[in-house]
Structures are given as C-alpha cells and as structure tokens.
Amino acid sequence: MKHYTATYWAFFKTSLLEQFQYRAAMAIWMIGRILEPIIYLTVWTTVAHARGGSVGSYSPADFAAYYIVLMLVNQFTFSWIMHIYDFRIRQGELSNFLLKPIHPIHADIAENIAYKVMTAVIIFPTAILLFFLFDPNLAFHIQTFALFLLALGIAFIMRFFIEWTLALVAFWTTRNEAINQMYFTLGLFLSGRIAPIDLLPGAIQTLADALPFRWAVAFPVELMLGRLSQEQILNGFTMQAVWLLAGFLLIQLTWRLGIKKYSAVGS
C-alpha cells in the first residue's frame, strides 16, 4: 500500500507538471464544460417562467442549484480515457506501459486526479460566481454533505472503471469514436445532464435506473440537493456498489482479453 502511495504521488506530480504545459488548451476545454450546464440552466429557467414558475417540482432556484452541483459532479467524475486509448494501441505506446511492473490503470487514475486538482482552480470560482448570479435554492447540512462526498467518491471510481472498460474496446475496433459518441449521447440523457431525470418520461427513467449513468452523476447531485428520501439514498448507494463491482469485473475481463489480442497481433 505504501508503495502504491509513493507511485501514485510520482504519477500525480509528473501529470501535474505535464498538464501545466497545456494551460491554454485546458482553459478552452473548461469553457465548454462550464457552458453546457449554464445553457441547460438558462433553457429550463425560461421554461419554468413560461409555465408559471416551475417545471415538475423544480423552481428556477431549484434548477440553478441542480445545474451548479451537476457541473461540479460531472467535472470531478468525467474521464477522457476512451478518446485516447485507440491512439495508444495503434501507435504502440501501450507497449511502454506493458513493460512496466505496474498495471497501467494506476497512471491513468493519477493523471485524472491531477487534472481535477488543476482545474479546481477554475471550477470552484465559477461555481461561486454562478451561486451569486442565479441565487440557487441550496441548503447546507453537514450530514447530507458527508453523504454527498461519499457518493461523489464512489461515482468517480465507478465511472472511471466503466469508461476505462469502454476505452479498452479499442483493442478490437481500432477506431473508437462511434462507440464513444453513443456513450456520450446516452450519458447526456441518462445521467441527468439535459434535464433532471424525474422530469423525463417514465420509460426513460426506468432505463436510467438500470444503467450506470444516473448513479455516476444525477444521484450525487440529487443527494446534495436534499431531494432524496432515505430509501432512495440507500437504493442509490446500492446501485453505485453494484456498478462499482461490475466495472471492476469488466475491467479485469476486457483487459485480459485485450492483452491476449494485443500480444497475438502486435502493434
């Protein structure tokens, strides 16, 4: 364990150093990531006003709270690994990783955390600014916040596992973009980004319950907003645990099969 901490620390430091080289690119990416929730927030606030003050159980202030927290949750749980893995395999860069006596996922996790720490400098001030601009309905309870942090932590790891599995599909397809695009679109609807999930039609809600997207993004958000009953919270954590385990097993399986393929064909 101590070894892993030391290795993670080294990965973290070097990733931070590397990403610091791309400050401008990072800022531009961040603009996109911040604009998305603001656009949906503006749309829904307008709809709420037109509908006489609310949509479902959401007032404009509720939407504001929802999208500000969602922006944070999405920022802290997203990964980009599936966009770079096919390059890594095609260019043979993966070989460098395979020659090292450590599973390559560790470097990717550390890199992701380094990015999140780096971008925290942008995302937190933005959240505070939006807080003053949109006057959200958000109360702070220490217990709720503690549960939120737990849900956020699990969400990060489970989402990372699932997206890393998705990235490994590159072992078979060599061009991952079509699958990535489908994943992105599903996530837009089913993780509560385009609209809070309880505003969507029943059938879509059922689908959202069965897939991991909701539990990775919408669940921590709704939890933080105090919109969930005790039973729903328990159910949410159960689903997170199930997808965490499923993601872990999926990685083991796809990694083993993928390496088998890679070492048969070469790069």
Binding site: H3, A6, T7, W9, A10, F11, K13, T14, L17, E18, Q21, Y22, G92, E93, S95, N96, K100, P101, I102
Partner: peptide, 23 residues
C-alpha cells in the same frame, strides 16, 4: 524509434516516475 520519456516535462521528472514505478 519509440520513446518512453514524457515529452513536455524535464527528463529528471520522467526518471523520477520510473524510480517510483520500479520502487
């Protein structure tokens, strides 16, 4: 024809990464 060093950071930092990997 392949490289394992990280392109944008000082060489010593890439070395440090290997130090940690190989314990």
């Amino acid at each position: 024809q392949r490289n394992q060093l990280m392109w944008d950071i000082p060489v010593a930092d890439s070395f440090e990464r290997n130090r940690a990997i190989y314990r």
